[in-house]
Nucleic acid binder design. Structure first.
Lengths: 140, 140
DNA sequence: CATTCTTTTTGACAAAGTCCAAAACTCGGT
DNA sequence: ACCGAGTTTTGGACTTTGTCAAAAAGAATG
């Protein structure tokens, strides 16, 4: 995120210290949970309420400024990288999340299944596995 | 599910009325939530505790007899159909879930991304959209 | 049938998030 | 620079989904 303040103004959002700090936190800690982000923000500007973190994250998500990902058995995580159609690789053991470029180009299967009458707007892919650290732990 | 009782025995699970009823409920109500299933089971055998529903669902999931799917913003849902590599189509508005055959054959991208050092064991795909009923509701 | 081991039940608890009303702040006009 | 209107932020209570633990009840083996 180049300039959090400018980003907020571009979207007609009042600029507050909390919003700037949350944006910076999301930018600096990809795939962090709301709690992690609250912690970062507190280190940054001293204090913020839990509710405000949720408010800000919800507004930013609604406006499409950040993306929320919600793997099973994990609290929601947030990221900065949007619009590049990448997917995620999640460790079953520790929740570590990594980005994976979409190998197949632009949202491959979006149109293939337009039966059922659903209007599909996103194809979400999550690769489940075990991260290197947890593989090591399990062996020992 | 042909014969719930036989299925339980095959997996060395003691046969109880609750387990049989939960299996039947999952079979008869694909993509139902734990609460929905508890309700079905109660209509079937009269009464069951909330905890037992969770116990049974967890055991059955661990044994691979049923599958748990956990879309964002929705409680876990359970289904009977396993081992045929199908994916899901979820309505953002009402949570309605449908099966979608995997168009691309056997777990297409599983090997493509074996970098990162992760040991990947599953590629989960969820198509997000709006079901016909909710499209109609939104328009009116 | 009786014993043993597993399940079921009951009730408390935990995590993640939302709802609500009051206080504080931002923005735009003057 | 200030004021007023409308948003945000805060703090606290609450909801939902699910788990933990101990006691009571049930299934399976000999």
């Amino acid at each position: 995120m180049r300039d959090p303040e400018a980003t907020l103004r571009q979207h007609d959002l009042p600029v507050t210290a909390q919003r700037i700090a949350v944006l910076r936190a999301v930018s600096g800690h990809p795939h962090a949970t709301a709690d992690d982000l609250a912690e970062s923000v507190r280190e940054d500007i001293g204090t913020i309420s839990r509710q405000s973190v949720y408010n800000v994250l919800n507004v930013l998500t609604d406006k499409g400024i950040i993306r929320r990902i919600q793997p099973a058995d994990s609290p929601a995580r947030y990221e900065d990288r949007i619009g590049d159609n990448h997917h995620h690789l999640v460790c079953r053991a520790c929740g570590k999340t990594e980005d994976v470029c979409c190998a197949v180009g632009e949202a491959p299967c979006l149109k293939a299944h337009s039966h059922h009458g659903f209007k599909i707007d996103e194809a979400e892919v999550i690769y489940w596995g075990t991260c290197p650290a947890c593989q090591k732990k399990k062996r020992s």
